[in-house]
């Protein structure tokens, strides 16, 4: 079970052809209190880097991109009424979408956790 990251601060945990997607603890920390989450409809097909979700915090509105291409299998609808879950547990309870991955080769471009941590340090 491997977690990868994008430079746009999404994470994806890949298990047997299914990727669970969310935004990183660093991104959530930067956004501050999350007040609204818009999730896609299950069944929706997305290409890598297409808008997958929308997240609003008190001070920012953000698009969340698909880290890999695929079909939306499931969404974490608990976030719709309780978006603060994202602040409390961004990389566990705050998962946003499960994707049936259609482009597994694209994963080569993702960052491993050490690579992402290094990348984030460069942004500080």
């Amino acid at each position: 079970m491997d977690v990868y990251f994008t430079r746009e601060h999404e994470w994806i945990r890949i298990e047997g052809g299914v990727g669970t997607v969310g935004i990183s603890a660093y991104a959530v920390e930067q956004l501050g209190d999350i007040t609204f989450v818009e999730l896609p409809k299950p069944g929706k097909e997305v290409a890598r880097s297409e808008v997958l979700c929308v997240v609003e915090s008190v001070k920012a509105a953000s698009d969340v991109y698909a880290p890999l291409s695929g079909w939306v299998k499931d969404v974490n609808s608990a976030l719709e009424s309780a978006p603060e879950i994202l602040n409390q547990s961004p990389e566990e309870e705050g998962w946003m979408v499960r994707l049936e991955i259609s482009g597994p080769d694209e994963a080569r471009d993702l960052l491993t956790r050490p690579e992402y941590d290094e990348y984030v340090r460069g942004l500080e």
Binding site: E8, H9, E10, Q30, A60
Partner: peptide
């Protein structure tokens, strides 16, 4: 993820400062 920040300076009319600030 790409964020539009809403600038608090009030002098730039709440422009999107994400281009400057990531």
């Amino acid at each position: 993820m790409a964020a539009s920040l809403f600038c608090f300076c009030r002098s730039c009319n709440y422009s999107d400062i994400s281009a400057h600030a990531g």
